[in-house]
Amino acid sequence: MHDLGSFLMQTLQGLFYLLIFPGGLFALSLGLLFKGVDRKLEARFQRRVGPPILQPFIDCVKLAGKEEMVPRGAPRAYFVYAPLLGLVGMAVCAALLPIPGVTHGMTDMGDLLVYFYLMPVPAFALMMAGSSSGSPFGALGFSREMTIMLAYEIPLLLVILAVALLVGAPASAEFSLNEIVEFQLANGSFGLNPVMMPALLAYLMFLPGTMGVPPFDIPEAETEILEGPLLEYSGAGLAFFSLTSAIKSIVVLGLGVVLFFPGTLPGGILVNIPWFVLKCFMLMLVALTFVKVASARIRIDQAFRFYIKYPTPLAALSLILVWVSR
């Protein structure tokens, strides 16, 4: 009886994490809000009025009511479920995310390594979408998405390794997100640690690539390949892709906060949730919004070379420094 009770409790707790608090509803609405603020800020930087802040919500409502089309010749199941795959992957990621001072996330379910494997799921969903839509633009988007993903995963892996080695020093590596937060709460944030500065820079460069914002919006370039993998999606399928990218923004920004700035304020949950949101927002401002308004799209080979040339050596530098100093 007792076992059953605790099993039920755990399941309920897991569902809560997945659907409501760090994951699901919270991440979704926060992500859409961030997107709206981002669009508004972009417009203000260009001296425009800009859309209302709730525009992404309105867009999703509209898309839900539109007719959905499946191109003839596309494998139907593959085409229809690709957007859901990305959404589910990101919801799990968001559920695993610890919010410093508020929640530990689903600690026993996964750590940084699981993150590393789950993070490219939306990219895989895009690849599935592109390759199954049966249009040459989708195929082009697919190949570009794959290229840029290979490029930005390398610095991400090196950053993760550097963090894990620093936390696990001197003997081993520590991949648990909670341990990472605790370690930094005790020994100071990595974002202020000179050894980890290059890794922080590399992570900031990784952000626009994974979020697909200019100058790295190459796979979904609407002016050259007509939004690539998203070309054939209409209605709800398209809405799922925009929800996925909303959660993904919270996941990658939140991971940045956890890895580099997990400091908390005294005063419990009610202070620390806005504090976390504020930190995510600052990260978005620096790594996404400013970069977006200040740059134009580059070519895929330039993007690949950029990721090999700058973030990778920076992250490797951090890794070496950590290795030497332990």
Partner: peptide, 10 residues
């Protein structure tokens, strides 16, 4: 864009 409009490629 203040009306919520957006040019789309597809």
């Amino acid at each position: 864009e203040r009306l919520g409009c957006k040019y789309c490629g597809s």
